[in-house]
Computed example of a mutant assay.
Amino acid sequence: MSDRPTPVGALLRAAPPDRLPEVVAEHLRRHHGAGRVEILLGDLTLTGLRPLLDVEGPAGDALAQRCFGSQRPVVDVAPDAHRTYLPLSVWGERLGVLVVETSPANGTGLTEHLTAAADELAVALRAADAITDRYRRAGRRERLTMAAELQWELLPGRSLGDERFLIAGQLQPAYAVFGDHFDWSLTGDRLTVTVLNGNGDGLEAAVLTTVAVNAMRNARRSGANIVEQAELASDALYARYGGDAHAATLLLEIDLISGRVEAVDAGSPRAIVAREHKSRTVTLEQQLPLGMFGDTRYETQRFVLEPADRLLVVSDGVHAATPAGRPPYGESALLTALRRTRLQPATEAVGTVMRGLREYHGDTEPEDDAVTVCLDWRR
């Protein structure tokens, strides 16, 4: 009879979805001599890391933030103990950080074992997120509005990537967003990205966006191209609202092999390409927002990305923001913020752009919600 321990992945699959942290902590203590174990999850803004096991414990420290940002293990060596920080991520989605304290005498190869456990835990947490509230509650500093609840539930995630690309998105204000939204889907070498700005305020704007997003998903999952996706969503919105409400939308379909991009520009979101030290706004002919008129038809436009290009897509809450009568954020301040992201991955760049927007507002409350999506094409 084998004395080998049960693999942590098997233990996690057998555990109740809300008990994954305790299962992995017990496994690490029993088989790797771990002392303190903590699981830190990113909050809604991804600016803080909140503890799961000791909910009254401290938030993630500077080393945890470094691990989260770099997506690489960080080891803090002390005479009496080693503290290892390991990223929790799956398919490019950053979830948080696993923190494990061990004795210096535990030997070589420990980081590899801990990394394997972190990878199994990340997959399990991603799967469990839909069937327990524990992990979402940990990431909230305050209660969401009903509109924001709808929008966060509708998101595909906050980042996605592999060796070909990395894409990330962020909503602001996180706890009170209503009409702005983003969506993406990866099939083979085709990445479909949409950024929406549903008009109106509060819950009605969120419902409008929900209808538009699900209509486009319905078309996409039936094999429709982005023109057909836009037309089905426009028809669905017009059937519901009769032209009284609409959703400005930019739909993109990116070939991850060639860099060719097909676009349907149905409103206000803007696309900017950063190449080496220069940035340029992608010139597209704007067509009618989704749902403005019945039987609206759309046309595809095209542009091409080059290897190592960065594509930034922002809603009008970003590029058209004019706090206290200042010039629009998109005229020059947005490009300044984008230049600051040159050495950052897309997952960090969206935060830099949004912080720049908050700084631009100063003491003025934003009049609109905002979304930023950043794609790095790595080929």
Score class of each variant (00 low, 15 high):
residue 164 R to D: 05
residue 181 H to G: 02
residue 143 R to Y: 10
residue 77 V to N: 05
residue 94 R to T: 00
residue 119 D to L: 15
residue 105 A to Q: 11
residue 123 V to K: 05
residue 49 L to G: 01
residue 112 E to Y: 05
residue 78 A to G: 04
residue 62 A to D: 14
residue 116 A to Y: 06
residue 60 G to V: 05
residue 75 V to D: 01
residue 145 T to W: 10
residue 80 D to A: 13
residue 148 A to N: 02
residue 53 L to N: 04
residue 46 L to A: 14
residue 167 I to W: 09
residue 125 L to C: 09
residue 55 V to A: 12
residue 161 G to S: 07
residue 103 S to L: 04
residue 100 V to T: 03
residue 94 R to S: 02
residue 135 Y to L: 07
residue 39 I to A: 08
residue 115 T to D: 08
residue 163 E to Q: 11
residue 110 L to H: 02
residue 85 Y to P: 00
residue 143 R to Q: 13
residue 99 V to A: 12
residue 112 E to D: 12
residue 61 D to S: 06
residue 35 G to S: 12
residue 116 A to H: 09
residue 120 E to D: 14
residue 178 F to T: 10
residue 66 R to T: 13
residue 75 V to L: 12
residue 69 G to H: 09
residue 52 L to I: 05
residue 124 A to E: 13
residue 81 A to L: 05
residue 52 L to P: 01
residue 89 S to R: 14
residue 165 F to N: 02
residue 133 D to P: 03
residue 142 E to K: 13
residue 138 A to W: 09
residue 47 T to L: 09
residue 143 R to H: 13
residue 47 T to P: 00
residue 174 A to D: 02
residue 182 F to T: 06
residue 103 S to H: 06
residue 142 E to H: 12
residue 63 L to G: 03
residue 55 V to H: 11
residue 95 L to K: 05
residue 60 G to D: 04
residue 122 A to H: 10
residue 92 G to V: 04
residue 73 P to C: 07
residue 171 L to M: 11
residue 168 A to Y: 07
residue 57 G to V: 07
residue 41 L to S: 01
residue 88 L to S: 01
residue 96 G to M: 09
residue 172 Q to F: 12
residue 60 G to A: 03
residue 156 P to I: 05
residue 72 R to N: 04
residue 101 E to S: 06
residue 156 P to D: 03
residue 181 H to M: 15
residue 146 M to W: 12
residue 101 E to W: 01
residue 166 L to E: 11
residue 96 G to V: 03
residue 56 E to P: 00
residue 111 T to Q: 15
residue 98 L to I: 05
residue 71 Q to E: 00
residue 121 L to A: 08
residue 65 Q to E: 06
residue 89 S to K: 12
residue 82 H to Y: 15
residue 127 A to H: 09
residue 106 N to P: 00
residue 180 D to K: 12
residue 150 L to I: 15
residue 87 P to R: 15
residue 165 F to A: 04
residue 147 A to S: 15
residue 42 G to Y: 09
residue 138 A to N: 06
residue 110 L to F: 05
residue 70 S to L: 15
residue 81 A to D: 02
residue 63 L to E: 14
residue 173 P to R: 11
residue 98 L to H: 03
